[in-house]
Design a protein around this nucleic acid. Sequence first.
DNA 1: CCTAGCATGTAATACGTTACATGATTCA
DNA 2: TGAATCATGTAACGTATTACATGCTAGG
Lengths: 175, 175
Amino acid sequence: MSSLTPTARVILGLLATGAETGYEIKQITDVSTRFFWGASYGQIYPELRRLERAGLVRGRDQPRGNVRRRVYELTPEGRAALESWLREDDWVFDLRDEGLLRLFFSDLLDSETVLAQLRERAAWFSGVADHFRSIRPPIDEGSHMFAVWRYGVELMEWNADWYAGLAQSLTERGR
Amino acid sequence: MSSLTPTARVILGLLATGAETGYEIKQITDVSTRFFWGASYGQIYPELRRLERAGLVRGRDQPRGNVRRRVYELTPEGRAALESWLREDDWVFDLRDEGLLRLFFSDLLDSETVLAQLRERAAWFSGVADHFRSIRPPIDEGSHMFAVWRYGVELMEWNADWYAGLAQSLTERGR
DNA sequence: CCTAGCATGTAATACGTTACATGATTCA
DNA sequence: TGAATCATGTAACGTATTACATGCTAGG
């Protein structure tokens, strides 16, 4: 069991890979880990201070002009906590999918409505896949980080195909 | 935007499909919607009373012997709220996947550790797929509810394959 | 007799988003 | 000059799990 809070995990990881400020952590998560591990300002800033009190990060005020700015870096203890977490062998896997819940109860609905919804959902996943494809990260294609990007694209494609396939089979059955 | 709370959605749906008590709702979610829409007693019982106050469900005490028991049913208003929610066209899709987050930062780790983790993860998804397959619901294969069961099995299989494939390609590259 | 299951409920706690407040700088 | 962006932060609120408490009944 990890002693790191959920948001601490992504913070330490991002500090290890070059992020410096809370603001930057938020920007990066929003275009990378967001779809499987989000973070909001309301979690990030308090967590950074908790981590500093716990000795896992060190912060220094480093304003840009008159814009106040606090940069953080991992301490050796923080780096150790990060690596220790990375080596753990249990993990959270949570899915919250309202579309699936609707489908679960959709036998209560007329089939035209359901069919329209399935097509809409297929289109939505397809659009998300396109979006993910468009934010391809400029990093080594052999890296694990790049593999996660591929996962995102492929998972969205798989979902788009699944819903399109179901809509298709319902259409054929309806004929 | 739905006025139903997250737990209200699954409660109304299950009441519409035959569940009667809070206990039963919990049992059913645990073997059906759990992997994409969980519910706990701490949400279910208070929510049932809120829904009753709001007039969406009606509860009656119906003990079995001396075991206290309160059965609920949808009111016409509850049925209408359920159908209205089912017809909405926006939805929540949230994923929280710690394995993916680890992989995202795994360039910090040695490749043997990462490879072992990928294989473990593939095995885990494969096991979950087996488990899902084993709880195949005894319902019409043409129903939407059955389609959701298939989704679960197939999504877990897809994940198992994805992680196994990545492990495989890393192995080949390592040679 | 004891355990598992039926059945209901609450309190503590954790986690998360949203909206808001503040203020500087850059660029059109 | 005004909008977007950089940057930090808090308060209110919603949602969730966990652990605990209670007590009956059925079956081995």
